[in-house]
Amino acid sequence: MKIVVASANPAKIRAVQQALSQVFTGHTLQCSGQNTPSGVSAQPMNSAETLQGALNRLQAIASDAPGADYYVALEAGLDGDCSFAWVAISHQGRISKTRSASLPLPPAALVAIQQGEELGDIMDRMFAQQNIKQQGGAIAMLTNHILTRSEVYKQAIILAMIPFIKPELF
């Protein structure tokens, strides 16, 4: 089964691989990622913009990499004082989407975001790290590594798969 992720981010690709391995037990999965533009700002500032970024990525990857069984796009953004992601999945022309859990952000991070910085860069600075967004993400840093970005994405990916797991209900 061929799955294409609309991102080159290892944390996102890992989340998709792990989630769909659970959904499709016994199947061999070929999961790859490709850098895909979101068409929205680098740091989406609300749910609507974040969803649009995920849908834009989904549409772009489907035309850039034809022939996959599933296309998956994840877009992280803000909703008020929390960070979250929209997950959009396409299979045979059908789209399913859902949101991840929300992560409350420290006030200093929110101020920096309002000044135009991206969350990953802010977390790198706050925790003296490099490239957090391609590792455990802000989630890992703020939960003392109890949760990671991939784990939270994995849950949302599985939830977005429900219409494909139980198509008779949708």
Rank of each mutant, 00 (worst) to 15 (best):
I89L: 06
A11R: 07
F24L: 13
E117C: 09
G120Q: 03
A109G: 03
C82T: 14
L51C: 09
D124V: 01
H145N: 14
A68K: 05
Y70M: 09
I61G: 00
A6F: 10
G33M: 03
G93P: 07
R14Y: 08
K2S: 07
A65C: 14
P37V: 01
M141H: 10
Q129L: 15
I122C: 00
N56S: 09
M1F: 13
I89Y: 05
N35T: 14
G67H: 08
V23Y: 00
P37G: 08
M141K: 15
Q135S: 13
V111M: 11
K97N: 13
S41N: 10
A138R: 01
F127R: 03
A140D: 03
A88Y: 02
L119M: 01
S83F: 09
M45G: 15
L51Y: 07
P104K: 12
A160P: 08
C31S: 01
I95V: 15
I157R: 00
S32N: 12
R94C: 14
N144E: 14
V152I: 12
A156R: 01
V152E: 02
S41L: 11
L147K: 12
K154L: 03
L74Q: 06
S41D: 11
G93C: 08
A65R: 12
P106S: 09
Q92R: 10
Y153M: 12
Q52E: 10
K2L: 10
A8N: 11
I89W: 01
K2R: 13
A156L: 04
A68I: 06
Q134K: 14
I165S: 00
Q135D: 10
M161I: 00
R125Q: 09
P44T: 02
T28M: 10
P107E: 13
P163G: 11
Q114H: 12
Q30G: 10
A60N: 15
K166I: 15
V87P: 08
Q134G: 14
Q155A: 10
I162Q: 14
Q129M: 13
G39A: 03
N131W: 10
Q59Y: 05
F24Y: 15
L159V: 12
R149N: 06
I113Y: 01
V5T: 04
A109C: 06
E168K: 14
I132S: 11
N144I: 08
V111T: 15
